[in-house]
């Protein structure tokens, strides 16, 4: 009995000493900044920074292979905290949120076929370009909503919409949309063109009641070309988000009714 106790205690002692020594001599010294960085990152693991998660981003920051303003979810505050830990100047970020540039609901934009294949945007787009008459518009099968880590996207009436309050700007939806119609825009911008069809006005009208016709009225009403609030791609107006328009009057004057002034993007028309 006594021998057994002594033996076990002895083994325990030896193991404890070995462990203590191992801790001292074999330790892998991790940069303490990694832990600090992980604690200031949002922990959403959304991957929007381009790394596998917040921890991977923290390691990349310490290794100096990532810019400190890459975390869209954390925004300026986070970038500043990162900069402080790393002892460098903060790179300016601006909170960006996703915008679905289409407002063709089922009642406004015609559907030219019955699609009864797999309910997924990319697959539907591979079938005759999708069942929507407009070949540039939202198909509404919710691929973006499925990847959004924050549940910020809802699909209703054949159209995806982003709730700006929930969106952290990770950009996952941008990547997955086969029609490439989601854009990350500054959260502070209030006026948007919700259309992605660059075709001529009459052709747009054939397929959608609320498509942009490229009439340039928005540009005219916001101070003309020189003011630089809009750019045009074919017959499609695009808001210049580095110099966004602010006068809500132009929204009401858009004859195509594809502009909105909306704090949350969710209400549409």
């Amino acid at each position: 009995m006594v021998i057994a106790i002594v033996c076990i205690a002895g083994i325990g002692l030896v193991a404890a000493i070995a462990l203590a020594l191992a801790d001292k001599y074999l330790a892998v010294r991790e940069d303490p900044r990694i832990g600090m960085l992980t604690s200031v990152l949002p922990g959403a693991n959304c991957g929007g920074c381009g790394f596998a998660g917040c921890d991977a981003y923290a390691r990349a920051l310490v290794a100096g292979t990532a810019p400190n303003g890459a975390c869209a979810a954390g925004g300026d505050e986070c970038a500043a905290a990162i900069a402080k830990i790393l002892g460098v100047a903060a790179e300016a970020t601006e909170k960006r949120v996703a915008l679905v540039k289409c407002c063709g609901t089922r009642s406004e934009a015609i559907r030219i076929g019955d699609y009864n294949g797999i309910c997924d945007c990319a697959t539907a787009a591979m079938t005759a370009g999708g069942d929507k008459g407009c070949k540039y518009g939202c198909l509404g099968y919710g691929a973006c909503a499925n990847v959004c880590p924050k549940g910020a996207i809802s699909v209703a009436d054949g159209l995806a919409k982003v709730d700006k309050r929930l969106c952290i700007g990770c950009g996952k939806c941008v990547k997955v949309c086969p029609k490439k119609l989601i854009e990350l825009v500054p959260a502070s911008a209030t006026i948007h063109v919700l259309c992605n069809n660059p075709d001529k006005g009459p052709n747009v009208r054939k397929v959608c009641g609320v498509g942009c016709m490229g009439c340039h009225l928005c540009e005219k009403n916001s101070g003309g070309k020189e003011a630089g609030h809009f750019t045009f791609q074919g017959f499609l107006a695009k808001v210049n988000y580095s110099n966004p328009p602010t006068d809500a009057m132009i929204v009401a004057k858009c004859p195509a009714k594809c502009m909105i002034e909306d704090a949350h993007f969710e209400s549409g028309h």
Partner: peptide, 9 residues
């Protein structure tokens, strides 16, 4: 269609 989708991705 599932096969096509798998191949595409």
């Amino acid at each position: 269609q599932f096969c096509r989708r798998a191949k595409a991705s």
